[in-house]
Amino acid sequence: MADPSKTPTVVADGVHITYTVHGGHPGGRGGATAALGRVLRRRTAPAGRRVHAVRGVSFVAHRGEAIGLIGSNGSGKSTLLKAVAGLLPVDRGRIYTHGQPSLLGVNAALMNDLTGERNVVLGGLAMGMSRTEVRERYDGIVDFSGINEKDDAISRPMRTYSSGMGARLRFSIAAAKSHDVLLIDEALSTGDARFRRRSQERIDELRAEAGTVFLVSHSNSTITQTCDRALWLEAGTLRMDGPAEEVVAAYEEFTAGPRAK
């Protein structure tokens, strides 16, 4: 895969990610005495469960690629994406990136009690734009989200938005900036058909602006339409890496298999 004509933007080299889960102890050891006992035993033992979410994944992503991540629930897709963004530390292996990858999660942090207006500004600043940049792009963001089409929704607090409207505004804010590497976690599954088409166009634009896009989605059609390459994760390991159509076809066969029996 070492094509000299392509510039790598993300390199994952044998990545392992584990994390510790507090609470929810196996075997119902949730009692106060058990907790006290654990504290006394310096909470090393069963204070948290270790989850080995990603097991030795390696890949090279290049400039201009759109890569879909597929796999069943709990296969480590979102965890891997967070690690690429540098938001979760890896246990073993390394992730190298060009510039700072930005994660566009569905729950990007905005304040529900504030108006859409102020959230656009806050979100832009949070992504590292300057005040002037935010001012320049403000209209573009609001227009793109389309939440102002029916009424003056942008001046209402975000808690009054429908979930689709909120997701659209969040996507618009995050997509306002061109990123070296943009990571999208299920963002396209919300919003109506028209917004989905528009956001797809925006992703294409972002790719054209010489970035790399990662997309996690459970919608196989979204993956094949938006991405040209796909990674299939299963139980934390990379099962397949190749052109989106082929990988999705293999994945569909795999998921249909157990049910057919």
Partner: peptide, 14 residues
């Protein structure tokens, strides 16, 4: 892969 990353000037994430 590490050498490839370094050759292209990528930095370690996080």
């Amino acid at each position: 892969l590490g050498a490839l990353a370094r050759r292209h000037g990528l930095s370690v994430s996080g």
